[in-house]
Amino acid sequence: MSDIFTLGIDVGSTASKCIIMRNGEEIVAKSLIDVGAGTSGPQRAIEAVLEDAGMKKEDMAYTLATGYGRTSLMDGIADKQMSELSCHAKGASFLFPNVHTVIDIGGQDVKVLHIDNGAMTNFQMNDKCAAGTGRFLDVMARVLEVKVEDLGRLGAMSKKKVGISSTCTVFAESEVISQLSMGTDKCDIIDGIHRSVAHRVTGLAHRIGVVPDVVMTGGVAQNTGVVKALQEELGCPIKTSPLTQYNGALGAALLAWQAASRRR
């Protein structure tokens, strides 16, 4: 039997990601473009992943879109769209077969998924407020004049605990500014920000219950400071993967494979 290739596309609010899989087992290619819904990002991400794989769109047996901008791909590009919730659940179960809880911190939202036997059976999402999301960290990094990707490393150098509000992005921003004007060390403030995010997310996670293994996905999972603070708040180890940012696209490619096999 010939191989089945499937494409998963995750059009997020701040980035577009693609994954091509062979037979729902092996990742063949991946791509990431730093702009998301409503931009050229999705198209560029698709072109990049196909080029990486040395394949054409016609070679894809099935294409599944997910993420905030998923419906925009339904005119001709994707065969189906599914919510990022199911896709993250699927992706995390592929990377970590024993996962029961997925914490995903994305650009605009935070989700906590409960998983049984590889399928999402319940979930919680944040309310409107940006506190605790990737955007929150972007805002703070800007105020502190550091790069978002450096937050984890800098926070690790903290020597003193500083409390930062977890209720509101604007409150937290003004707290950060007043800490800066009081001369507080940036690393301490960053550590406080990480704990603020962890606190907020923990509240959400406890709403549906935290059952190990706990896996963290989404771009923010690359921030070691947030992961560490979350482990402390939750009191259990958290697993991450170098593929964390691709997790939604990975799940989409896996679900695409399921759909393609059903179609056969």
């Binding site: 599914m82 919510s83 199911s86 399928a119 059976t121 999402m125």
Partner: peptide, 25 residues
Amino acid sequence: RNFNAAQYETRVQGLVEAMEANKQA
């Protein structure tokens, strides 16, 4: 002013997918 249709749709879709997973299980 306090309602966002896109956020709502994602949550409904998530619920539907979870109900489906539950049914299949």
